[in-house]
Write a protein that binds this DNA or RNA. Structure first.
Lengths: 224, 224
DNA sequence: CGACAACGTATCGATCCGATATATCGAGTG
DNA sequence: CACTCGATATATCGGATCGATACGTTGTCG
């Protein structure tokens, strides 16, 4: 169902995070900006449903990843800040972690929905969490969806009331859909020869750090 | 602001319509499907605000378009049905027409928003209602928006945690944005040499039935 | 030290949408 | 003729979303 749920659970499956950080990561990861007005209610709901759990803010206790801000000064500053935060009360900074139920829900969301267009980029973003069969299933479904939409656009009447812009729009939409279709076809071909699923949602704590870039993207010099 | 408002007012500026018909036209005109759960509340709101007005259901009274079913029997049957409907209560079939305030609001919506991606296709659909200067302004704004987004995508970190799918996604997004950008550039060039605005939102009661198709759209027939 | 930006959580109102309820009509179909 | 079925047509509900906004903390810079 929910777009936000998929994004939140996907990110938390990799690392414990708090709300603000979740949003920043998401903006980097895909263009999908989830507003705070969606994010915080979603986190509350997911916590109520048992999919996520508020964990101790471990920022600084040994194994914590601590995102690496890039600047040394920034990192040490953040570190000292974190220490102080644990000591004094400090408003909020609720760090969430995913639960087993949440992982199950994530697996469900990764496969099922596809109604919203913004869902597919998110599914792709976390596609590595699925076994090969699941990956192909998602890509095939997207392919079918695009094909259907393309057929619908090409079947549109385009009667005498059509202005030049309406015509241009229809033509461009058809072209974009055709191109997306070809791109997904490339992804499907690439997924078939995928070496092996490095980590799945079922196998819990695998860090999945060794995902090789691989040769990608069906090239594309013919454009321009 | 509202996507639905733009669609409704745009369609009503061409012809009086009722809710169900509005949705059908919209599905044909652009891929944007407006659900009834949005449409009817929007119509109520627009009526409350004075942008649209419920008009008499003129189905059959002389100049009415009456879609023409094709069969004679069908038409007379529809005619008699319409009479009966007016006589007896007959549930609903509220036909709406646009008011001057609505036309003003439409002009406003056609120019201003652009925050939602689904807004631009709608703006294009009704672009002929604006004078040339307005058209160029909208297209330029879209161009700027796309350029900004493209820059953002290209500036995305893409660190070591990136899977092949994340890379493919980023590359595809960049390519799509670049293509859209080029397309909009073409539209801008085409808008500059546009002959003259056939009808504008300011000139009120013009039926605008004589919108000439014009020489158009980089040709078409190549499909299928 | 005081202004200011960045961080961080949270809520409100308006809106949007899928699902659903309700009702009428024309076209079959037995 | 009664019956169903699908298209037409309006309407509402609950859940989700989002932009705006409020509020508090922390670090930075002049």
């Amino acid at each position: 169902m929910s777009l936000t749920d998929l994004a939140v659970l996907g990110l938390l499956s990799e690392q414990d995070l708090h709300g603000y950080e979740l949003q920043k990561r998401l903006a980097d990861l895909s263009g999908t900006r989830v507003s705070f007005g969606s994010l915080y209610p979603a986190l509350s709901r997911l916590e109520r449903e048992g999919a996520v759990r508020a964990v101790d803010d471990v920022t600084g206790t040994g194994t914590a990843p601590l995102p690496a801000t890039g600047s040394l000064a920034g990192e040490t500053a953040a570190f000292r800040a974190a220490l102080r935060q644990v000591r004094r009360g400090r408003r909020g900074r609720k760090v969430y972690g995913i639960t087993d139920a949440g992982r199950a829900r994530l697996a469900e969301l990764l496969e099922a929905p596809a109604d919203d267009d913004r869902a597919f980029p998110l599914q792709l973003t976390f596609l590595h969490l699925l076994p090969t069969s699941g990956r192909t299933r998602i890509l095939e479904r997207r392919r079918a969806q695009l094909a259907e939409r393309l057929a619908a656009v090409e079947a549109r009447p385009l009667d005498r009331t059509a202005t030049r812009w309406r015509r241009a729009l229809a033509a461009h939409e058809a072209e974009s859909l055709a191109r997306d279709l070809a791109w997904v076809d490339g992804l499907i071909a690439g997924a078939a020869e995928s070496p092996e699923p490095a980590a799945s949602v079922e196998s819990a704590t695998e860090p999945a750090g060794a995902v090789r870039p691989d040769t990608v993207t069906t090239n594309g010099g013919t454009t321009a």
